Computed example of a mutant assay.
Amino acid sequence: MTSLTSTTPRSQRVPGELIRVGDVHVRVNVTGEGPPLLLVHGLGAGLDLWAPLVSELKGYTVITLDNPGAGASTVPWPPWFMNKYAETLDAVLDELGFDRVDVLGLSFGGMVSQEFAFRYPQRVRRLILAGTTAGIGVTFGNPLALSVLATPLRYYSRSYMAMIAPFLYGGDAHAGSELVAEQSNLRHQMRPSIPGYFAQLTTASTFSSFWYLPTLRMPTLVLAGDEDPITNPLTCWVISKRIPDCEYQEIKGGGHLFLMEKPKLSADLIREFLEREAREDVDTEQKTARRRISRSA
């Protein structure tokens, strides 16, 4: 297993957008200005697939990456357990110089984000989990859709992507749609390797967060597409009921890719959650300060 605790300098950079953390290379991209927001994508997905949402996230420093096994990042072989993906996120944030961030994870990225929030809670200010699952035993998606995830062919064949998109992703992902065409083009630009895809798939199949979700203490928002065949609303609702300080919202007409289907609506929900919580923090501090002043008077 590739180690992240070797003597290789963590800060050693390699050409392009690759950074070296321990013994692995991770492709990253940092854009914008404002509070840092880390986006963690799904199974086999490169950071480029975030483009529609990132364009709507003005006012944030948006951090995206290729999870190991996707895009240009190192293939984790033999497959990792989920804790290694969390460890990689921790190392990437160290390398980029971010101490504490808001985190949004989609699908497999939501699983990684749950693990990261559990193991490194001091680094997660607020957590958003979109179209994801708590893992073994609590995934109630459509069996046909889940079976299609067994192959990365949708990243390699545009015609196959067009054929399976409606029953795999749901929502607006119908054959001939602008969403499917755009996502297909982006997937072809940075496809996962076959070993990399199956490494992530193996990790997902051994993952469970159900037992530790009640220990998460950061404010959390769970988002679900009401037409998502992979992680249907029940799958997401279970997560929301396990986390103490958690809100749950369904996106009407949203499929598994609702963050990219409806980027403006999604960005508005993200911003409202993050900024509302920030305002509440300020209000609490102001009330505390007023109490202190009244007592001293």
Rank of each mutant, 00 (worst) to 15 (best):
G137L: 11
P79C: 06
R125V: 08
G105P: 00
G137F: 07
E95S: 14
L129W: 09
R123M: 06
I128R: 02
A91N: 04
G141F: 10
V103W: 03
V92H: 08
G141Y: 10
H174E: 15
V92R: 07
L89E: 04
V112G: 04
G170R: 07
A150Y: 05
S147V: 01
H174S: 14
F108K: 01
A91M: 06
G110P: 03
V124I: 10
V148Q: 08
S113A: 15
Q114A: 05
W80D: 02
P152Y: 06
I164W: 08
E87S: 13
T133E: 04
A145N: 11
A70D: 02
A91W: 00
R119K: 13
L127P: 03
Q114V: 03
A145F: 10
R154M: 08
V112Y: 00
R119Q: 13
R123A: 00
L129M: 14
F140M: 10
T133G: 03
F118D: 08
S159K: 14
P79K: 03
W77V: 08
M82L: 11
A86D: 04
G171S: 14
D99F: 13
P79S: 07
E95V: 12
L96P: 01
P166I: 07
A145L: 13
A86G: 12
S113G: 14
Y169T: 02
G137Y: 09
A175R: 15
R125P: 03
F98C: 05
R158P: 04
D99R: 15
A162W: 06
Y120T: 10
G141P: 11
R126C: 02
A134P: 01
M82R: 00
M111R: 02
